[in-house]
């Protein structure tokens, strides 16, 4: 199955191509979402649609301190969620690769990780789109309950 392969800092990740609507460049400014989790970067205007964008690195590892981003502008991978999109902020998109065999996820991996795969010499963490969406929703409900 074809996957979009991208990087968070130096680590490689992949999402099924079928779950991705498109990849866009980071806008100049996000509008902040009030009362949201640290992983939520803000909302952006995508051709008249309002899209929530999350810091994927923070979503995957909430306990790690957020790194200040440097270097070329980052990309937003737009997850296709039917009538809406969810934007994932990543360091860079490498390309589309065929990944057929996905090995089991490490024992302590969160639900967002589907498993590990190899692309030549490189290790790639394959993510689960549904779980990513659920993780974002969960981070919101946690906030509003606290």
């Amino acid at each position: 199955m074809r996957h979009v392969v991208f990087r968070l800092d130096k680590d490689r990740y992949a999402l099924p191509l079928a779950a991705i609507r498109e990849v866009v460049v980071t806008p100049e400014k996000f509008s902040r979402v009030p009362r949201s989790a640290p992983s939520v970067r803000g909302i952006m205007n995508l051709r008249g649609r309002v899209v929530t964008v999350v810091e994927l690195a923070t979503l995957l590892r909430p306990d790690q301190p957020e790194k200040k981003h440097e270097g070329p502008p980052r990309k937003i991978v737009l997850l296709d969620r039917g009538r809406r999109e969810l934007g994932l902020l990543v360091t860079e998109v490498d390309g589309i690769e065929a990944i057929e065999k996905v090995g089991p996820a490490p024992p302590k991996a969160p639900a967002t990780v589907k498993g590990l795969a190899r692309l030549g010499a490189l290790a790639v963490t394959v993510l689960e789109p549904e779980a990513l969406d659920a993780a974002v929703a969960a981070s919101f409900s946690k906030i509003s309950r606290s």
Partner: peptide, 15 residues
């Protein structure tokens, strides 16, 4: 739209 509808105190969004 989800997840923004989970935020208390927001009525909507506009451009």
């Amino acid at each position: 739209t989800r997840p923004l509808d989970l935020v208390a105190g927001l009525a909507g969004v506009t451009i």
